[in-house]
Design a protein around this nucleic acid. Structure first.
Lengths: 228, 228
DNA sequence: CCCTTTTTCGTCATCACGACGATAACCACT
DNA sequence: AGTGGTTATCGTCGTGATGACGAAAAAGGG
Protein backbone atom coordinates (compact mmCIF):
# COMPACT_ATOMS: atom_id res chain seq x y z
CA UNK A 1 0.00 0.00 0.00
CA UNK A 2 2.99 2.23 0.37
CA UNK A 3 2.93 2.77 -3.36
CA UNK A 4 -0.34 4.72 -3.18
CA UNK A 5 -0.67 8.35 -2.13
CA UNK A 6 -1.47 8.81 1.56
CA UNK A 7 -4.50 10.83 2.62
CA UNK A 8 -5.71 12.21 5.91
CA UNK A 9 -9.39 11.45 6.56
CA UNK A 10 -11.60 13.60 8.76
CA UNK A 11 -15.28 13.80 9.63
CA UNK A 12 -17.15 17.10 9.65
CA UNK A 13 -20.60 17.62 11.09
CA UNK A 14 -23.55 19.71 9.96
CA UNK A 15 -25.56 19.73 13.18
CA UNK A 16 -28.95 21.40 12.83
CA UNK A 17 -31.62 22.24 15.37
CA UNK A 18 -34.73 24.39 15.61
CA UNK A 19 -34.68 26.84 18.50
CA UNK A 20 -36.70 30.00 19.02
CA UNK A 21 -38.40 29.49 15.65
CA UNK A 22 -35.05 29.62 13.88
CA UNK A 23 -32.99 27.00 12.13
CA UNK A 24 -29.54 26.96 13.72
CA UNK A 25 -26.28 25.19 12.95
CA UNK A 26 -23.56 24.23 15.40
CA UNK A 27 -20.30 26.04 14.58
CA UNK A 28 -16.91 26.34 16.24
CA UNK A 29 -14.46 29.20 16.08
CA UNK A 30 -11.06 27.99 15.00
CA UNK A 31 -8.30 28.67 17.49
CA UNK A 32 -5.35 27.57 15.37
CA UNK A 33 -4.25 28.08 11.76
CA UNK A 34 -5.31 27.61 9.09
CA UNK A 35 -8.38 29.86 9.08
CA UNK A 36 -7.64 30.91 12.65
CA UNK A 37 -10.56 32.88 14.06
CA UNK A 38 -12.97 31.79 11.35
CA UNK A 39 -16.18 29.84 11.90
CA UNK A 40 -16.07 26.19 10.89
CA UNK A 41 -18.08 23.03 11.12
CA UNK A 42 -17.10 20.85 14.06
CA UNK A 43 -15.09 17.80 13.11
CA UNK A 44 -11.87 15.91 13.57
CA UNK A 45 -9.62 13.18 12.35
CA UNK A 46 -10.75 9.58 12.05
CA UNK A 47 -8.88 7.16 14.27
CA UNK A 48 -6.71 4.38 12.88
CA UNK A 49 -9.10 1.64 13.95
CA UNK A 50 -12.28 3.65 13.94
CA UNK A 51 -15.23 3.14 11.59
CA UNK A 52 -16.63 6.25 9.91
CA UNK A 53 -20.04 6.23 11.62
CA UNK A 54 -18.29 5.77 14.96
CA UNK A 55 -16.03 8.73 14.30
CA UNK A 56 -19.04 10.90 13.41
CA UNK A 57 -20.94 9.81 16.53
CA UNK A 58 -17.89 10.42 18.69
CA UNK A 59 -17.41 13.93 17.35
CA UNK A 60 -21.12 14.64 17.81
CA UNK A 61 -21.02 13.49 21.41
CA UNK A 62 -17.85 15.51 22.06
CA UNK A 63 -19.26 18.72 20.61
CA UNK A 64 -22.71 18.55 22.14
CA UNK A 65 -21.62 16.99 25.40
CA UNK A 66 -24.46 14.50 25.18
CA UNK A 67 -24.10 10.78 24.39
CA UNK A 68 -26.32 10.53 21.29
CA UNK A 69 -29.43 12.25 22.66
CA UNK A 70 -31.94 10.79 20.23
CA UNK A 71 -31.95 12.80 17.04
CA UNK A 72 -30.68 11.62 13.70
CA UNK A 73 -27.26 11.15 12.11
CA UNK A 74 -26.63 10.27 8.47
CA UNK A 75 -23.81 10.55 6.01
CA UNK A 76 -24.04 13.65 3.84
CA UNK A 77 -21.18 13.34 1.38
CA UNK A 78 -17.43 13.32 0.97
CA UNK A 79 -15.32 16.27 -0.10
CA UNK A 80 -11.71 15.93 -1.17
CA UNK A 81 -10.76 18.67 -3.61
CA UNK A 82 -6.97 19.02 -3.70
CA UNK A 83 -6.06 22.22 -1.91
CA UNK A 84 -9.19 22.38 0.23
CA UNK A 85 -6.89 22.12 3.26
CA UNK A 86 -3.56 23.97 2.99
CA UNK A 87 -1.93 21.46 5.32
CA UNK A 88 -2.09 18.63 2.82
CA UNK A 89 -4.38 16.19 1.12
CA UNK A 90 -7.36 15.86 3.43
CA UNK A 91 -10.57 14.06 2.51
CA UNK A 92 -13.51 14.76 4.78
CA UNK A 93 -16.62 12.67 5.21
CA UNK A 94 -19.44 15.07 6.07
CA UNK A 95 -22.40 14.02 8.24
CA UNK A 96 -25.78 15.57 8.82
CA UNK A 97 -27.21 15.54 12.34
CA UNK A 98 -30.68 16.72 13.31
CA UNK A 99 -31.21 17.32 17.01
CA UNK A 100 -34.02 18.59 19.23
CA UNK A 101 -33.36 21.88 20.98
CA UNK A 102 -30.93 20.87 23.70
CA UNK A 103 -31.79 22.15 27.17
CA UNK A 104 -28.21 21.70 28.32
CA UNK A 105 -25.79 24.34 27.07
CA UNK A 106 -23.51 23.06 24.37
CA UNK A 107 -20.20 22.78 26.13
CA UNK A 108 -17.80 20.84 23.99
CA UNK A 109 -14.74 19.22 25.41
CA UNK A 110 -12.72 20.72 22.59
CA UNK A 111 -10.58 23.78 23.06
CA UNK A 112 -12.88 25.91 20.90
CA UNK A 113 -16.40 26.04 22.32
CA UNK A 114 -19.28 25.36 19.94
CA UNK A 115 -22.15 27.79 19.42
CA UNK A 116 -25.56 27.68 17.78
CA UNK A 117 -25.67 30.12 14.90
CA UNK A 118 -28.94 30.87 13.07
CA UNK A 119 -28.49 29.97 9.42
CA UNK A 120 -30.54 32.99 8.36
CA UNK A 121 -27.84 35.27 9.74
CA UNK A 122 -25.03 33.55 7.85
CA UNK A 123 -25.58 35.63 4.75
CA UNK A 124 -22.15 36.82 3.78
CA UNK A 125 -20.14 35.09 6.47
CA UNK A 126 -17.53 32.75 5.04
CA UNK A 127 -16.77 29.50 6.79
CA UNK A 128 -13.35 27.88 6.85
CA UNK A 129 -12.23 25.40 4.17
CA UNK A 130 -15.10 24.38 1.89
CA UNK A 131 -17.54 24.33 4.78
CA UNK A 132 -19.86 26.82 3.06
CA UNK A 133 -20.54 24.28 0.40
CA UNK A 134 -20.91 21.44 2.89
CA UNK A 135 -23.37 23.45 4.97
CA UNK A 136 -25.39 24.38 1.88
CA UNK A 137 -25.57 20.73 0.88
CA UNK A 138 -26.66 19.77 4.38
CA UNK A 139 -29.42 22.36 4.45
CA UNK A 140 -30.72 21.25 1.09
CA UNK A 141 -30.63 17.61 2.19
CA UNK A 142 -32.54 18.41 5.36
CA UNK A 143 -35.19 20.41 3.51
CA UNK A 144 -35.67 17.67 0.95
CA UNK A 145 -35.83 14.87 3.50
CA UNK A 146 -38.65 16.53 5.42
CA UNK A 147 -40.81 15.93 2.39
CA UNK A 148 -40.72 12.20 2.15
CA UNK A 149 -39.44 10.96 5.51
CA UNK A 150 -40.65 11.46 9.09
CA UNK A 151 -37.31 13.08 9.90
CA UNK A 152 -38.90 16.29 11.15
CA UNK A 153 -39.53 14.37 14.37
CA UNK A 154 -35.76 14.33 14.93
CA UNK A 155 -35.97 18.06 15.64
CA UNK A 156 -38.60 17.43 18.33
CA UNK A 157 -38.29 16.03 21.84
CA UNK A 158 -39.43 12.45 22.39
CA UNK A 159 -43.00 13.63 22.98
CA UNK A 160 -44.35 16.52 20.97
CA UNK A 161 -47.53 18.12 19.70
CA UNK A 162 -48.68 18.51 16.13
CA UNK A 163 -48.09 22.24 16.43
CA UNK A 164 -44.47 21.71 17.42
CA UNK A 165 -43.98 19.46 14.43
CA UNK A 166 -45.60 22.07 12.21
CA UNK A 167 -43.23 24.70 13.56
CA UNK A 168 -40.32 22.51 12.46
CA UNK A 169 -41.61 22.35 8.91
CA UNK A 170 -42.32 26.06 8.83
CA UNK A 171 -38.88 26.91 10.19
CA UNK A 172 -36.87 24.59 7.97
CA UNK A 173 -38.83 25.42 4.84
CA UNK A 174 -39.40 29.07 5.62
CA UNK A 175 -43.09 28.82 4.76
CA UNK A 176 -46.41 28.94 6.60
CA UNK A 177 -48.63 25.90 6.73
CA UNK A 178 -52.33 25.71 7.47
CA UNK A 179 -52.70 24.22 10.98
CA UNK A 180 -55.89 22.33 10.12
CA UNK A 181 -54.68 20.73 6.94
CA UNK A 182 -51.32 19.94 8.53
CA UNK A 183 -53.06 18.25 11.45
CA UNK A 184 -55.20 16.15 9.13
CA UNK A 185 -52.21 15.18 7.03
CA UNK A 186 -49.90 14.23 9.90
CA UNK A 187 -52.47 12.21 11.82
CA UNK A 188 -53.72 10.64 8.60
CA UNK A 189 -50.37 9.43 7.28
CA UNK A 190 -49.94 5.88 8.60
CA UNK A 191 -46.95 5.44 10.89
CA UNK A 192 -45.88 9.08 10.96
CA UNK A 193 -46.84 9.72 14.60
CA UNK A 194 -48.44 7.60 17.32
CA UNK A 195 -50.52 9.18 20.08
CA UNK A 196 -49.14 8.91 23.57
CA UNK A 197 -52.51 9.29 25.28
CA UNK A 198 -51.70 12.34 27.34
CA UNK A 199 -52.02 16.04 26.59
CA UNK A 200 -50.14 19.21 27.31
CA UNK A 201 -51.00 21.21 30.44
CA UNK A 202 -50.59 24.83 31.38
CA UNK A 203 -50.12 26.10 27.84
CA UNK A 204 -52.16 28.73 26.14
CA UNK A 205 -55.28 27.61 24.29
CA UNK A 206 -56.78 24.17 24.12
CA UNK A 207 -54.50 21.39 25.37
CA UNK A 208 -52.85 19.42 22.58
CA UNK A 209 -52.40 15.68 22.28
CA UNK A 210 -48.86 14.40 22.72
CA UNK A 211 -47.34 12.15 20.07
CA UNK A 212 -44.22 10.08 19.61
CA UNK A 213 -42.50 9.31 16.35
CA UNK A 214 -44.24 6.47 14.51
CA UNK A 215 -42.69 3.38 12.94
CA UNK A 216 -42.82 4.67 9.35
CA UNK A 217 -39.49 5.26 7.65
CA UNK A 218 -40.97 6.73 4.48
CA UNK A 219 -44.05 8.93 4.17
CA UNK A 220 -46.77 7.75 1.82
CA UNK A 221 -47.95 10.09 0.54
CA UNK A 222 -45.14 12.60 1.07
CA UNK A 223 -45.48 16.05 2.61
CA UNK A 224 -45.07 18.23 -0.44
CA UNK A 225 -43.89 21.79 -0.34
CA UNK A 226 -46.14 24.13 -2.28
CA UNK A 227 -45.59 23.64 -5.94
CA UNK A 228 -47.53 25.67 -8.46
CA UNK B 1 0.03 16.11 9.15
CA UNK B 2 2.44 13.29 9.79
CA UNK B 3 0.92 12.90 13.23
CA UNK B 4 -2.38 11.64 11.80
CA UNK B 5 -3.02 8.12 10.57
CA UNK B 6 -2.55 7.69 6.80
CA UNK B 7 -5.35 6.28 4.68
CA UNK B 8 -5.59 5.06 1.11
CA UNK B 9 -8.57 6.52 -0.76
CA UNK B 10 -10.25 4.79 -3.68
CA UNK B 11 -13.35 5.32 -5.79
CA UNK B 12 -15.72 2.45 -6.59
CA UNK B 13 -18.49 2.60 -9.15
CA UNK B 14 -22.00 1.17 -9.21
CA UNK B 15 -22.71 1.46 -12.93
CA UNK B 16 -26.26 0.51 -13.85
CA UNK B 17 -27.98 0.15 -17.20
CA UNK B 18 -31.16 -1.34 -18.60
CA UNK B 19 -30.58 -3.83 -21.38
CA UNK B 20 -32.86 -6.53 -22.72
CA UNK B 21 -35.51 -5.62 -20.14
CA UNK B 22 -33.10 -6.37 -17.32
CA UNK B 23 -31.32 -4.14 -14.84
CA UNK B 24 -27.58 -4.85 -15.14
CA UNK B 25 -24.53 -3.74 -13.19
CA UNK B 26 -20.98 -3.43 -14.50
CA UNK B 27 -18.66 -5.83 -12.67
CA UNK B 28 -15.04 -6.85 -13.04
CA UNK B 29 -13.44 -10.15 -12.14
CA UNK B 30 -10.47 -9.61 -9.90
CA UNK B 31 -7.19 -10.92 -11.28
CA UNK B 32 -5.03 -10.36 -8.21
CA UNK B 33 -5.37 -10.97 -4.47
CA UNK B 34 -7.19 -10.22 -2.33
CA UNK B 35 -10.45 -11.78 -3.47
CA UNK B 36 -8.74 -13.09 -6.60
CA UNK B 37 -11.30 -14.46 -9.04
CA UNK B 38 -14.24 -12.82 -7.30
CA UNK B 39 -16.60 -10.28 -8.86
CA UNK B 40 -16.10 -6.72 -7.74
CA UNK B 41 -17.24 -3.22 -8.54
CA UNK B 42 -14.89 -1.36 -10.86
CA UNK B 43 -12.74 1.22 -9.14
CA UNK B 44 -9.27 2.41 -8.35
CA UNK B 45 -7.10 4.68 -6.33
CA UNK B 46 -7.52 8.44 -6.30
CA UNK B 47 -4.55 10.36 -7.66
CA UNK B 48 -2.50 12.68 -5.49
CA UNK B 49 -3.74 15.81 -7.22
CA UNK B 50 -7.08 14.48 -8.39
CA UNK B 51 -10.49 15.66 -7.19
CA UNK B 52 -12.98 12.96 -6.23
CA UNK B 53 -15.52 13.60 -9.03
CA UNK B 54 -12.65 13.59 -11.52
CA UNK B 55 -11.41 10.27 -10.23
CA UNK B 56 -14.90 8.78 -10.54
CA UNK B 57 -15.33 10.13 -14.08
CA UNK B 58 -11.90 8.84 -15.06
CA UNK B 59 -12.65 5.35 -13.77
CA UNK B 60 -16.01 5.38 -15.52
CA UNK B 61 -14.43 6.37 -18.81
CA UNK B 62 -11.72 3.75 -18.41
CA UNK B 63 -14.15 0.94 -17.67
CA UNK B 64 -16.76 1.76 -20.28
CA UNK B 65 -14.31 2.97 -22.91
CA UNK B 66 -16.50 6.00 -23.57
CA UNK B 67 -15.69 9.57 -22.52
CA UNK B 68 -18.75 10.36 -20.39
CA UNK B 69 -21.46 9.27 -22.83
CA UNK B 70 -24.32 11.30 -21.37
CA UNK B 71 -25.85 9.40 -18.47
CA UNK B 72 -25.63 10.41 -14.84
CA UNK B 73 -22.95 10.23 -12.16
CA UNK B 74 -23.47 11.08 -8.49
CA UNK B 75 -21.80 10.32 -5.22
CA UNK B 76 -23.37 7.41 -3.40
CA UNK B 77 -21.55 7.21 -0.09
CA UNK B 78 -18.26 6.51 1.59
CA UNK B 79 -17.28 3.23 3.22
CA UNK B 80 -14.29 2.87 5.49
CA UNK B 81 -14.82 0.09 8.02
CA UNK B 82 -11.47 -1.00 9.42
CA UNK B 83 -10.64 -4.38 7.95
CA UNK B 84 -12.77 -3.98 4.83
CA UNK B 85 -9.57 -4.30 2.81
CA UNK B 86 -6.99 -6.77 4.14
CA UNK B 87 -4.18 -4.73 2.63
CA UNK B 88 -4.65 -1.84 5.02
CA UNK B 89 -6.84 1.08 5.91
CA UNK B 90 -8.69 1.92 2.72
CA UNK B 91 -11.59 4.34 2.51
CA UNK B 92 -13.62 4.18 -0.67
CA UNK B 93 -15.90 6.83 -2.06
CA UNK B 94 -18.66 5.02 -3.96
CA UNK B 95 -20.39 6.57 -6.97
CA UNK B 96 -23.61 5.70 -8.75
CA UNK B 97 -23.67 5.92 -12.53
CA UNK B 98 -26.77 5.43 -14.70
CA UNK B 99 -26.08 4.84 -18.38
CA UNK B 100 -28.11 4.10 -21.48
CA UNK B 101 -27.55 0.70 -23.05
CA UNK B 102 -24.18 1.12 -24.70
CA UNK B 103 -24.00 -0.08 -28.29
CA UNK B 104 -20.22 -0.39 -28.10
CA UNK B 105 -18.99 -3.45 -26.23
CA UNK B 106 -17.62 -2.59 -22.83
CA UNK B 107 -13.90 -3.07 -23.30
CA UNK B 108 -12.08 -1.54 -20.39
CA UNK B 109 -8.44 -0.67 -20.57
CA UNK B 110 -7.89 -2.44 -17.29
CA UNK B 111 -6.39 -5.88 -17.10
CA UNK B 112 -9.64 -7.43 -15.99
CA UNK B 113 -12.40 -6.88 -18.54
CA UNK B 114 -15.70 -5.56 -17.30
CA UNK B 115 -19.01 -7.33 -17.90
CA UNK B 116 -22.67 -6.47 -17.57
CA UNK B 117 -24.27 -8.75 -15.00
CA UNK B 118 -28.04 -8.77 -14.47
CA UNK B 119 -28.71 -7.88 -10.87
CA UNK B 120 -31.56 -10.38 -10.72
CA UNK B 121 -29.05 -13.21 -11.15
CA UNK B 122 -26.80 -12.03 -8.34
CA UNK B 123 -28.83 -13.86 -5.72
CA UNK B 124 -26.28 -15.68 -3.63
CA UNK B 125 -23.16 -14.48 -5.36
CA UNK B 126 -20.82 -12.64 -3.01
CA UNK B 127 -18.85 -9.69 -4.27
CA UNK B 128 -15.37 -8.78 -3.06
CA UNK B 129 -14.78 -6.50 -0.07
CA UNK B 130 -18.00 -4.83 1.09
CA UNK B 131 -19.21 -4.39 -2.47
CA UNK B 132 -22.42 -6.31 -1.74
CA UNK B 133 -23.47 -3.58 0.61
CA UNK B 134 -22.39 -0.81 -1.75
CA UNK B 135 -24.30 -2.38 -4.63
CA UNK B 136 -27.40 -2.78 -2.48
CA UNK B 137 -27.21 0.86 -1.45
CA UNK B 138 -26.78 1.90 -5.07
CA UNK B 139 -29.80 -0.09 -6.19
CA UNK B 140 -31.93 1.37 -3.46
CA UNK B 141 -30.76 4.88 -4.30
CA UNK B 142 -31.56 4.37 -7.98
CA UNK B 143 -35.02 3.00 -7.25
CA UNK B 144 -35.83 5.83 -4.89
CA UNK B 145 -34.55 8.54 -7.22
CA UNK B 146 -36.79 7.41 -10.06
CA UNK B 147 -39.70 8.50 -7.93
CA UNK B 148 -38.97 12.14 -7.49
CA UNK B 149 -36.39 13.01 -10.16
CA UNK B 150 -36.35 12.66 -13.96
CA UNK B 151 -33.33 10.39 -13.63
CA UNK B 152 -34.96 7.53 -15.49
CA UNK B 153 -34.05 9.45 -18.63
CA UNK B 154 -30.38 8.76 -17.87
CA UNK B 155 -31.04 5.13 -18.78
CA UNK B 156 -32.39 6.18 -22.19
CA UNK B 157 -30.62 7.43 -25.30
CA UNK B 158 -30.79 11.15 -26.04
CA UNK B 159 -34.10 10.68 -27.87
CA UNK B 160 -36.58 8.15 -26.59
CA UNK B 161 -40.24 7.23 -26.58
CA UNK B 162 -42.62 7.15 -23.65
CA UNK B 163 -42.68 3.37 -23.92
CA UNK B 164 -38.89 3.17 -23.56
CA UNK B 165 -39.08 5.35 -20.49
CA UNK B 166 -41.84 3.15 -19.09
CA UNK B 167 -39.70 0.07 -19.64
CA UNK B 168 -36.99 1.70 -17.52
CA UNK B 169 -39.39 2.19 -14.63
CA UNK B 170 -40.78 -1.32 -14.97
CA UNK B 171 -37.32 -2.84 -15.07
CA UNK B 172 -35.80 -0.90 -12.19
CA UNK B 173 -38.85 -1.24 -9.97
CA UNK B 174 -39.79 -4.76 -11.06
CA UNK B 175 -43.41 -3.76 -11.53
CA UNK B 176 -45.84 -3.31 -14.42
CA UNK B 177 -47.24 0.12 -15.18
CA UNK B 178 -50.35 0.95 -17.18
CA UNK B 179 -49.18 2.43 -20.52
CA UNK B 180 -52.05 4.90 -20.72
CA UNK B 181 -51.73 6.31 -17.24
CA UNK B 182 -47.96 6.41 -17.54
CA UNK B 183 -48.21 8.34 -20.78
CA UNK B 184 -50.59 10.86 -19.24
CA UNK B 185 -48.39 11.30 -16.21
CA UNK B 186 -45.09 11.72 -18.06
CA UNK B 187 -46.41 14.15 -20.64
CA UNK B 188 -48.37 15.99 -17.98
CA UNK B 189 -45.54 16.57 -15.52
CA UNK B 190 -44.00 19.95 -16.44
CA UNK B 191 -40.37 19.74 -17.51
CA UNK B 192 -40.06 15.97 -17.40
CA UNK B 193 -39.79 15.45 -21.17
CA UNK B 194 -39.92 17.78 -24.15
CA UNK B 195 -41.17 16.58 -27.54
CA UNK B 196 -38.63 16.50 -30.31
CA UNK B 197 -41.20 16.77 -33.10
CA UNK B 198 -40.32 13.56 -34.89
CA UNK B 199 -41.58 10.01 -34.49
CA UNK B 200 -40.18 6.53 -34.67
CA UNK B 201 -40.23 4.71 -37.99
CA UNK B 202 -40.17 1.08 -38.94
CA UNK B 203 -41.23 -0.22 -35.55
CA UNK B 204 -44.20 -2.40 -34.82
CA UNK B 205 -47.49 -0.66 -34.15
CA UNK B 206 -48.31 2.99 -34.30
CA UNK B 207 -45.26 5.29 -34.50
CA UNK B 208 -44.37 6.95 -31.21
CA UNK B 209 -43.35 10.53 -30.57
CA UNK B 210 -39.72 11.09 -29.70
CA UNK B 211 -38.81 13.04 -26.59
CA UNK B 212 -35.73 14.48 -24.95
CA UNK B 213 -35.13 14.96 -21.29
CA UNK B 214 -36.81 18.13 -20.03
CA UNK B 215 -35.36 20.89 -17.87
CA UNK B 216 -36.95 19.75 -14.61
CA UNK B 217 -34.62 18.54 -11.90
CA UNK B 218 -37.36 17.47 -9.51
CA UNK B 219 -40.72 15.93 -10.38
CA UNK B 220 -43.82 17.66 -9.08
CA UNK B 221 -45.79 15.64 -8.40
CA UNK B 222 -43.49 12.62 -8.04
CA UNK B 223 -43.92 9.24 -9.75
CA UNK B 224 -45.02 7.11 -6.83
CA UNK B 225 -44.59 3.38 -6.66
CA UNK B 226 -47.74 1.58 -5.66
CA UNK B 227 -48.38 2.14 -2.01
CA UNK B 228 -51.47 0.80 -0.30
C1' DC C 1 -68.97 34.88 32.58
C1' DC C 2 -66.93 36.59 28.38
C1' DC C 3 -62.91 36.95 25.45
C1' DT C 4 -58.74 35.15 23.47
C1' DT C 5 -56.03 31.44 22.02
C1' DT C 6 -55.16 27.06 20.24
C1' DT C 7 -56.55 22.43 18.96
C1' DT C 8 -59.43 19.51 16.48
C1' DC C 9 -63.24 18.18 13.46
C1' DG C 10 -66.02 19.06 9.00
C1' DT C 11 -67.23 20.80 4.39
C1' DC C 12 -66.50 21.66 -0.30
C1' DA C 13 -64.39 22.24 -4.73
C1' DT C 14 -60.46 20.86 -7.26
C1' DC C 15 -56.99 17.94 -8.76
C1' DA C 16 -54.27 13.66 -9.32
C1' DC C 17 -54.58 8.88 -10.05
C1' DG C 18 -55.99 3.85 -10.98
C1' DA C 19 -58.90 1.18 -13.94
C1' DC C 20 -60.47 0.79 -17.96
C1' DG C 21 -62.79 1.75 -23.11
C1' DA C 22 -62.05 3.61 -27.57
C1' DT C 23 -59.61 5.33 -31.41
C1' DA C 24 -55.46 6.28 -34.33
C1' DA C 25 -51.66 4.85 -37.00
C1' DC C 26 -48.51 1.91 -38.39
C1' DC C 27 -46.85 -3.27 -40.27
C1' DA C 28 -47.49 -7.96 -42.11
C1' DC C 29 -49.94 -10.91 -44.65
C1' DT C 30 -53.15 -12.49 -47.98
C1' DA D 1 -56.67 -3.28 -51.49
C1' DG D 2 -58.27 -5.25 -47.48
C1' DT D 3 -57.83 -7.49 -43.00
C1' DG D 4 -55.88 -8.42 -38.64
C1' DG D 5 -52.34 -7.52 -35.18
C1' DT D 6 -49.78 -4.27 -32.50
C1' DT D 7 -48.73 -0.20 -30.23
C1' DA D 8 -49.55 4.84 -29.21
C1' DT D 9 -52.61 8.21 -27.72
C1' DC D 10 -56.91 10.27 -26.10
C1' DG D 11 -61.15 10.05 -22.90
C1' DT D 12 -64.16 8.76 -19.06
C1' DC D 13 -65.32 7.69 -14.52
C1' DG D 14 -64.99 6.95 -9.67
C1' DT D 15 -62.01 7.53 -5.70
C1' DG D 16 -58.87 9.57 -2.72
C1' DA D 17 -55.75 13.45 -1.47
C1' DT D 18 -55.39 18.38 -1.02
C1' DG D 19 -56.04 23.57 -0.36
C1' DA D 20 -59.25 27.00 1.44
C1' DC D 21 -62.06 27.79 4.92
C1' DG D 22 -65.97 27.45 8.75
C1' DA D 23 -66.99 25.93 13.21
C1' DA D 24 -66.86 23.64 17.57
C1' DA D 25 -64.06 22.15 21.64
C1' DA D 26 -61.12 23.14 25.50
C1' DA D 27 -58.18 25.55 28.07
C1' DG D 28 -56.50 30.41 30.64
C1' DG D 29 -57.08 35.40 31.93
C1' DG D 30 -59.62 39.27 32.92
Amino acid sequence: MAEYPPFAVTVDLVVLTVRADELAVLLVRRGVPPYEGAWALPGGFVGVDEDLPDAAARELAEETGLPEPAGHLEQLGTYGRPGRDPRGRVVTVAWLALLPDLPAPVAGTDAAAAEWVPVAGLGRRRLAFDHDRILADGLERARAKLEYTPLATAFCPAEFTVAQLRTVYETVWGTRLDPRNFHRKVTGTPGFVTPVGRSTEGERGRPAQLFRRGPATLLHPPMLRQQR
